[in-house]
Computed example of a mutant assay.
Amino acid sequence: MDLRRQSVGRTSAHAPDPRTEVHAYTVTNGQGHAITVWTYGATLVDVSVPDRHGRLANVVHRLPDLRTYENRTLNPYVGSTVGRYCRAIRNGTFTLDGVPHVLDRNDGEHHLHGGPAGFDRRVWQAWTEESADEAAVVLRLVSPDGDQGYPGTVDVEAAYRLHRSGRLTFDYRATTTAPTIIGLTNHAYWNLAGGGTIDGHHLAINADRTVAFDSDLLPRSGPPVPLAGTALDYRTPRRIGAAAIDNFFVLDDATWAAELADPDSGRRMTVVTDQPGMGVYSSDGPAAPRRGLCLEAGAWPDAANRPDFPSVRLDPGDVYEHRTTHHFSVD
């Protein structure tokens, strides 16, 4: 295993962490797989994977430089670690133990992906770890009480672990000084072709139900709805084509969550997670039009306001833990 670090520049004067040096950490496993992670946003910027002929390509969409990553218009959370809470919170408010909390709003009247200065906009501390069979980039961020409106000081770690076999694992861990909510995820845009659009990819999702959304992509009242016979039924692998996907799938089976395959290159990726659901987004916005497919394992949307959804509460003395693993193979 090989580990390298280099500087990619300093954040702008107007960044949440102004004029802070940003580093890139690269891990190579010696078997043709490599990852690169930036301390800005704990962002995954490169995952090099061989195709059926052994040719390497980066299978996550990346941006050209630090300034582009800092530009919210040009960077729709590309590869970033999203927090404190992934997806949206209705009206930017929630109540915990009878106390209302008002969050910073950045999606109209709603709060999205941790707010305007969420974890994706911060420069994380980082170090590396190595064992006989894997190496990791571990990143840490301390989010103070009141950050973006959230209660409690939260200490977060995000680790990207590359195994000698080529599997890539995201490990998240967090503790808090006061009752709060948390839900972390990675927002990589996967493209197993290494370029172009994802239209030719085949997708399978191990879900029988989806959370029904309203026009603001927030949950409607009532339980999740069955997928059988709908356009969102991906239980059997099928070509994505021009389908626009921006939905949240309920994961009831921990065996596997999703599978993405590119027939032309032969690359295949199977996702396994301990999380209760997965947001799937086909990147139909102008910043990265269909350049990758987001597979965001994590908490259910607006769960802080929905007692019928899996809890996202974190109390002092407890530990939030989340693991998602990406297994790569070729056909």
Rank of each mutant, 00 (worst) to 15 (best):
Y40N: 01
V49Q: 10
G41C: 12
Y25V: 12
H33L: 02
N29H: 13
V22A: 12
G30N: 14
V37R: 03
D17P: 09
D17W: 06
N29Q: 14
A15T: 11
G32M: 10
A42Y: 01
N29P: 14
Y25Q: 07
V22I: 14
G41N: 13
N29S: 11
I35W: 00
L44N: 05
V22G: 12
A24R: 15
T43P: 09
V37N: 04
Q31M: 10
A13T: 13
A42Q: 04
I35L: 13
S48D: 13
H33I: 02
P18Q: 12
T28Q: 10
V22C: 11
V37E: 03
V49G: 08
G41K: 06
T36S: 15
D17I: 05
A13P: 02
P16M: 07
T26Y: 00
A34H: 07
N29V: 12
V27Q: 04
G41I: 11
V49F: 06
G32W: 07
T26E: 07
T28D: 13
S48P: 01
E21N: 12
V37K: 04
T20P: 09
V49C: 07
L44M: 14
H33A: 02
T36F: 05
L44F: 02
A24D: 13
P16I: 10
G41V: 11
L44E: 01
N29F: 08
E21F: 05
P18Y: 09
Y25D: 08
V22K: 14
G32C: 09
P16C: 08
Q31G: 08
E21I: 09
G32F: 06
P18D: 11
G30K: 14
Y25L: 12
